[in-house]
Simulated scan of single mutants.
Amino acid sequence: MQEMEIQDYARRLFDAHGTKAIAEAAQKASSFEEKGKPDEARTWRQIEAAIKLIRGPNAS
């Protein structure tokens, strides 16, 4: 997944789920890690990081 796609997906996920999107992305990444799929896990970690940036530094 390209950076623009990651940013777009992160934005849509955040718009749909708010701050819960961070946990959702982290859970998907962990699931792929457990399944031995590091590329998919890396993509979800990037999505998680992008959501955190969208959320901003002052949100908890």
Rank of each mutant, 00 (worst) to 15 (best):
Q2P: 11
Q2L: 12
Q2I: 06
E3T: 11
E3M: 12
E3Q: 14
M4H: 13
M4E: 15
M4A: 15
M4K: 15
E5W: 10
E5I: 04
E5Y: 12
E5L: 13
I6P: 04
I6W: 04
I6E: 03
I6Y: 03
Q7L: 12
D8Q: 15
D8M: 13
D8I: 15
D8K: 14
Y9L: 14
Y9C: 05
Y9K: 11
A10E: 03
A10T: 05
R11Q: 14
R12A: 13
R12F: 10
R12V: 08
R12W: 10
L13N: 03
F14W: 02
F14R: 01
F14A: 01
D15C: 04
D15N: 09
D15P: 00
D15L: 06
A16M: 02
A16E: 10
H17P: 09
H17L: 15
H17I: 02
G18E: 07
G18K: 13
G18V: 14
G18T: 07
G18Q: 11
G18S: 13
G18P: 13
T19R: 11
T19Q: 12
T19C: 07
T19E: 15
K20D: 15
A21V: 00
A21I: 01
A23Y: 05
E24P: 02
A25N: 08
A25W: 00
A25I: 00
A25S: 04
A25Q: 00
A25L: 02
A25R: 01
A26Q: 11
A26W: 06
A26H: 10
Q27E: 14
K28D: 05
A29K: 02
A29L: 01
S30L: 10
S30T: 09
S30H: 14
S30K: 14
S31I: 08
S31M: 10
S31H: 14
S31G: 12
F32V: 04
F32K: 13
F32Q: 07
F32L: 14
E33G: 03
E34R: 09
G36W: 03
G36V: 03
G36M: 06
G36C: 01
K37Y: 05
K37T: 00
P38K: 07
P38Q: 11
P38W: 01
D39L: 14
D39T: 05
D39M: 06
D39K: 08
D39F: 05
D39Q: 13
E40F: 07
E40M: 12
E40V: 03
E40T: 03
A41V: 01
R42T: 07
R42H: 11
T43N: 10
T43V: 08
T43W: 06
W44Q: 00
W44L: 01
W44I: 01
W44Y: 00
R45S: 05
R45D: 09
R45Y: 09
R45C: 08
Q46P: 05
Q46F: 04
I47G: 05
I47F: 09
E48G: 04
E48K: 02
A49P: 03
A49E: 05
I51S: 00
I51R: 00
I51Y: 02
I51P: 04
K52P: 07
K52C: 09
L53D: 12
I54D: 03
I54Q: 07
I54V: 11
I54G: 04
R55G: 09
R55L: 12
R55P: 01
G56V: 01
G56K: 02
G56M: 06
G56L: 00
P57L: 09
P57N: 07
N58W: 10
